[in-house]
Design a protein around this nucleic acid. Structure first.
Lengths: 250, 250
DNA sequence: TTGCCTATTGGTCATGCATCCAATAGCGTT
DNA sequence: AACGCTATTGGATGCATGACCAATAGGCAA
């Protein structure tokens, strides 16, 4: 009997394999951070050799950007579905705020924080971040605009209102890695209150709906049972190496 | 003549050297990012051997935390001086907002973004971030409280108002690494407007003062002439190694 | 069934980093 | 002026990462 079982290789279609890789990377991004997306790490998770990953993503940064885009995109879909019942603007918005709370959303906050910082060093990621930012902004803007058409919202400018709401959400989200237990309600509910003001809703009306939605659905996808801590990484800089400066090779 | 000049060593007092190291690290943190604070990098900048740095900071993470604390502390002092003329609450607040804009403040936003993200992996840094966060919050709270005593501000709760203002500033700050050129005034001035609301000021009054302050002092410490780009670092994770697991050595 | 295309493997290489350590040389003290 | 303390040097180690490549084997097509 051979020392170690002769590793039998599974051969998948490029599309399937690529999708598998991106999906795995997206999960890592969401639960452990973009810095943890490494050729070796993804390969290990998929029980595959590192070389395979770099075969699909010759440049690591590309995979990171792809992972972020996928994760952020899927989260957007879950938080603010593109498809929604007609005349449901108010309820949809309340649902969005309800879902934008709790540990479930913390992962998302952490991811955005992560991506926005890393964008400083990774152009490709920065581009993806810009795209997702626009996507979130546009979808919220659309919701507000449709709500205005329905007669429930009365924003001066839907686009501006959307940005204001997102800015507040971002401001609250930056503390995802910090203690927020002693936050007063006037702070916790800032996003909702901002929305009420920007949309000309009677104070407290939206907040009531949000609270109701929160109690109705304790947590959509079940509370994250502690993602997968694994030993975290400090993150050491690596001057963006181009494939060339690793030695031209003979 | 010897190949390379026999490096003459300068011997400084531990306090002086340590201060020198921290100062340098703080500058790097502010201009290039916390990930760029590396034993080698700091040593190079100070024309000293890496070993010296690790002599003063056996664990790298400690230096990073120290650098952040110093940088953030000094910035706070510049943006919201502890000492200020009596009865100047309104003007002081306006000055704070005026200084909290433009490229000068972008470095600070980037640093906070950086620190908050890195806190996810570095406990020591996280602790420092919490301390600085409290410092900023407390100083702003004090300013608001004193302004209330002076009769110029009318906050329901100074502490809450302070947090709300900071949350908005944070929300605006997360885009420090992104394009913000197409931001409407209603967004750019969100922090000021939030302050006016939270402090019961007549709409636009504070904003006028801020604009005046902006024009008066184009930029405190002169516009940063493009920090020191140096080749940026992607940032590769390193499972936090304890000094022990590097091999006990015989 | 045979054969070819290519997905996948199994390493190699160079680089960057933190940590550790023995030897050296400033500089204040005696 | 000689001494001793310790700040500083000069390497050595070990680890992790991304990039690169020739050889192998999986499975669809002929």
């Amino acid at each position: 009997m051979p020392p170690s079982a002769p590793p039998k290789r599974v051969r998948k279609s490029p599309e399937a394999r690529r999708a598998e890789i991106v999906a795995r990377a997206a999960t890592i991004a969401l639960t452990e951070g973009l810095e943890c997306i490494t050729m070796r790490r993804v390969a290990d998770d998929l029980a595959v050799r590192p070389g395979l990953i770099s075969h699909y993503f010759p440049v690591a940064e590309e995979l990171v950007a792809e992972a972020f885009g996928t994760a952020a995109g899927e989260e957007l879909e879950e938080l603010m579905p593109a498809e929604r019942p007609a005349g449901s603007a108010l309820v949809s918005l309340a649902g969005f705020f309800a879902r934008s709370t709790g540990p479930r959303y913390d992962d998302m906050s952490r991811l955005w924080l992560n991506a926005r910082h890393l964008s400083r060093f990774r152009p490709v990621l920065a581009e993806r971040v810009a795209v997702q930012e626009a996507a979130w902004r546009d979808r919220l803007t659309r919701l507000l605009r449709e709500g205005a058409a329905e007669g429930t919202f009365h924003p001066e400018d839907p686009a501006v209102a959307a940005i204001q709401i997102l800015v507040v959400l971002d401001g609250l989200g930056v503390h995802a890695n910090t203690d927020r237990s002693d936050r007063p309600p006037a702070v916790t509910n800032m996003a909702v209150i901002t929305a009420e003001r920007a949309l000309g809703l009677t104070p407290g009306s939206l907040l009531d709906l949000v609270d109701a939605a929160r109690n109705a659905a304790p947590t959509p996808t079940a509370a994250t049972p502690t993602p997968a801590p694994r030993t975290p990484p400090p993150t050491a800089p690596t001057t963006a190496r181009t494939p060339a400066d690793t030695a031209p090779t003979a």
